[in-house]
Design a protein around this nucleic acid. Structure first.
Lengths: 208, 208
DNA sequence: TAGATTGTTAATCGATTAACAATC
DNA sequence: TAGATTGTTAATCGATTAACAATC
C-alpha cells in the first residue's frame, strides 16, 4: 500500500503529532508553523517537515499548517477513519482497566468481547461488554470479525493464545504480556512492556 | 556517572536482554553465544556484542556468555539491585491494575501509597496499600522518601500533579496520562501512551 | 511586492552491520 | 593445539539536521 516505505521512526512519531494537534485544536489554534510546533513538541522543525512530507505537502509556504486540516489528515494516515472491533483476552485487573478506558472508543476502537478462563469472571459484564469463557474464543472468532486483540494474560499462556488468535483470523495483537511473541509474517504486534518501561526509569535514576 | 554516554537505543534494549536472559535462566540454559541469542531475540549478533560492550566484556572468546552472570550484570546496570519506593497517583482502574501487579515488587519496585481525590476511594486498601487523600500528597512527600511516582489520572490534571511531585522531591515519573509532561532538567519521565500504541496498530493494519 | 515558511536537496551525524584479529 | 566466539575497528546504512530555492 505504502508508495515509499515509511521508516519506523516516523510511524512512531505520528500519534504524537496527532495528539499535539488535537490539543491545539481544543485550544482553538487555527494555524501553526513547523517552528512553533517544534518548540511545543521538543523536536526540530526540520524533522517535522521531513516527517509530514513523507505523506504529502500539508502546509503552505508563508503560512504554515492549518491545525484542523493537518489533524484530520494524520488521523487518516493512522487509519482512524474507520471502526475497529477489539477483544480483550484476560479479564484481570489490566484487562478490566483497558475495558473501562472509554477514550479508545472515541478513536474508533470498539470493544466487542472479553475472554477469561476464571469461572467467577465468566458471565460478568464491564461497560456492557460480556466476559466470555476463554474456551469459546475459537468459536467466537469464526462468527465475528475481530480486528485487534489485546492480550492481558500471564506470559506463560500468551504465545499459545496469540497463535489461536492468529488462526482465528486476527491480524493485529496488542500485547501486554511480558514476553515477545513470534507470530507469522503479516501479523502486526504492538508490545506494551510495562516492566521494561519501569526498568528504563530505574536505569535513568541510577545514572543521574 | 556514565563514563561514556550510552545511546538511548541501547538503553531501550537493555530490559529486553534482561527479560530474555531471565527466560533462559528459567529454562536452565547455562551459556549462550551472541549468535544463538540473536536468533532468539530477532536482532543481529553484532548488535548484541556492540550493546554489551558499552558496559564491559561480559563474554569469553570461544565460549560465549554465561547466562546467569550476564543476567545479573544487566540487572546491576539497570539498577535492579536496590529497592525503589513507588507511589501511584490516581486509584482508578489503571492505578489499581498497576497496584495489583505483583511482578514489579519482585524487581524491587515497592508500592508505598496511592492517592486519589474521590471520597469513595480514599481509605480503601489494595494489597495492603492505602489509598490516601490526594490533598495530603505534599505532606506525604515531606515525610517519606519516594523514588518513583506513577501518574494514572486524566491528562487535564497531570501537568500540575507532576509539578507537585517534583516539588516534593520525586525524580522519576512513570506517566500514563496521554500528554507529554514538560518537567525541569534532571527529572526522568517514562511515558506509557496506550492510545499511541493502539494507533500504531491501526496504522500497520491499514498499510498491510 | 516583501516577508514568511514550506518542501526538498545536501550535509552531517549516529546507529547498525560486517569483518577480523585477539584469545579463551 | 584447533575451533569457536568474543571484543573492537572499519564500512555501511539510515535518520536527523541544515540550508535554501520555491512559493504562498
Amino acid at each position: 500500500m505504502a508508495e515509499k516505505e515509511i521508516s519506523l521512526a516516523v510511524i512512531k512519531r505520528l500519534p504524537k503529532y496527532y495528539r499535539n494537534l488535537g490539543e491545539l485544536l481544543e485550544n482553538n489554534v487555527e494555524r501553526i508553523s513547523s517552528k512553533e510546533l517544534s518548540e511545543r513538541m521538543q523536536v526540530t522543525a526540520s524533522q517535522i517537515r521531513q516527517d509530514l512530507n513523507n505523506f504529502g505537502g500539508f502546509g503552505q509556504q508563508g503560512y504554515g499548517y492549518n491545525v484542523e486540516y493537518l489533524h484530520t489528515e494524520i488521523g487518516k494516515i493512522l487509519g482512524l477513519t474507520r471502526k475497529y472491533h477489539m477483544i480483550i483476552i484476560g479479564a484481570g485487573n489490566l484487562g478490566q482497566a483497558l475495558a473501562n478506558y472509554t477514550q479508545f472508543e472515541k478513536n474508533g476502537f470498539v470493544l466487542k468481547a472479553m475472554f477469561d478462563k476464571k469461572q467467577e469472571l465468566i458471565g460478568q459484564t464491564i461497560r456492557g461488554v460480556k466476559i466470555l469463557n476463554a474456551e469459546t474464543m475459537g468459536q467466537y472468532l469464526k462468527e465475528h470479525e475481530v480486528d485487534i486483540a489485546a492480550i492481558t494474560i500471564p506470559k506463560e499462556n500468551a504465545p499459545t493464545v496469540a497463535m489461536d488468535l492468529v488462526k482465528g483470523g486476527v491480524r493485529a495483537i496488542w500485547n501486554f504480556a511480558p514476553t515477545d511473541l513470534h507470530l507469522p509474517e503479516g501479523v502486526k504486534v504492538e508490545n506494551v512492556h510495562l516492566a521494561d518501561s519501569l526498568m528504563r526509569l530505574s536505569y535513568n535514576l541510577k545514572n543521574s
